[in-house]
Simulated assay, not measured.
Amino acid sequence: MSDIDAAAGRYTTLAGEHRTELEIRRSRFITVLRRTETEEQARALVADLRREFHDARHHCSAFVLGTVREVQRSSDDGEPSGTAGIPMLEALTKRETFDGATDLSDITAVTVRYFGGILLGAGGLVRAYSESVSAALSTAPLLRRRRMQLYSIPAGHAEAGRLENDLRTAGISVTGTEYGAAGANITVALPDIPGSAGTFRERLAAFTAGGSTPEPLNTEWIDL
């Protein structure tokens, strides 16, 4: 992850689960990618695939976790040391995502290999496992996550709809509106970066003629 992305509080992850298959010199390489946020979830994927492909010889894996990719693990699962897990991990950590960033995280890759009878050699295995993960990533649905500061904006019943529309038109992320007996509360999410709140307050003042003051809530990571 670049220093800019880390400072801005954003990274890229997988939208759900994705799988692909390659045949390389008669060996089948089935790669499954899954969004995971903990080591337990990552290891659960390996366990799931061991049950699904119980007759396969190898279930090699790699995962990258955390908002700044602080957890990175890999396993060769019986392949010669360094020929499977590490190439898979490098395919994840070096993958360019949005705007050329290398910020992929909260993702686990498992490559299941059915041996086809032809030895690939150390170099061939490195290329095969790296290519398998890279091929899966090339078609996987990715999304950007960002650390956002939430604010609540009080509004009257009559003004809430118009104000929500103004906010959305201005490119401000509206996460929901709650209506109560006394009025409505609109919740918005702003990038948790310097200057964001000041610009937002100026826009809100213009929309409401200074009649509404946002109340800061908590900070959350949100899928964009």
Score class of each variant (00 low, 15 high):
residue 87 P to I: 07
residue 108 T to F: 10
residue 77 D to I: 02
residue 99 D to F: 06
residue 85 G to C: 12
residue 67 T to H: 09
residue 102 T to F: 00
residue 110 V to H: 12
residue 79 E to M: 08
residue 66 G to D: 11
residue 107 I to D: 15
residue 103 D to G: 02
residue 77 D to Q: 02
residue 80 P to V: 07
residue 90 E to P: 06
residue 109 A to F: 13
residue 100 G to E: 08
residue 76 D to A: 01
residue 74 S to C: 15
residue 106 D to P: 09
residue 78 G to W: 01
residue 98 F to D: 07
residue 75 S to K: 07
residue 101 A to D: 08
residue 70 E to M: 05
residue 65 L to I: 05
residue 81 S to M: 13
residue 87 P to A: 03
residue 74 S to R: 09
residue 77 D to A: 02
residue 76 D to M: 03
residue 95 R to F: 11
residue 102 T to K: 15
residue 63 F to Q: 11
residue 89 L to C: 07
residue 100 G to I: 10
residue 82 G to C: 05
residue 88 M to I: 09
residue 86 I to P: 08
residue 93 T to M: 15
residue 64 V to N: 11
residue 103 D to W: 01
residue 101 A to V: 05
residue 75 S to T: 06
residue 85 G to R: 09
residue 96 E to W: 04
residue 108 T to A: 15
residue 71 V to D: 01
residue 64 V to E: 12
residue 74 S to L: 07
residue 89 L to K: 14
residue 66 G to E: 14
residue 71 V to P: 00
residue 98 F to I: 13
residue 65 L to Q: 01
residue 72 Q to W: 03
residue 73 R to P: 02
residue 106 D to G: 01
residue 80 P to Q: 14
residue 64 V to T: 08
residue 79 E to A: 09
residue 98 F to P: 12
residue 105 S to E: 08
residue 79 E to T: 07
residue 75 S to H: 07
residue 99 D to M: 10
residue 72 Q to C: 04
residue 89 L to F: 02
residue 108 T to W: 15
residue 96 E to T: 03
residue 107 I to S: 14
residue 82 G to Q: 03
residue 98 F to W: 13
residue 94 K to W: 04
residue 107 I to Q: 14
residue 86 I to Y: 04
residue 101 A to L: 13
residue 91 A to Q: 15
residue 81 S to Q: 15
residue 76 D to C: 00
residue 87 P to L: 11
residue 70 E to D: 11
residue 71 V to G: 00
residue 63 F to A: 12
residue 96 E to L: 13
residue 78 G to P: 10
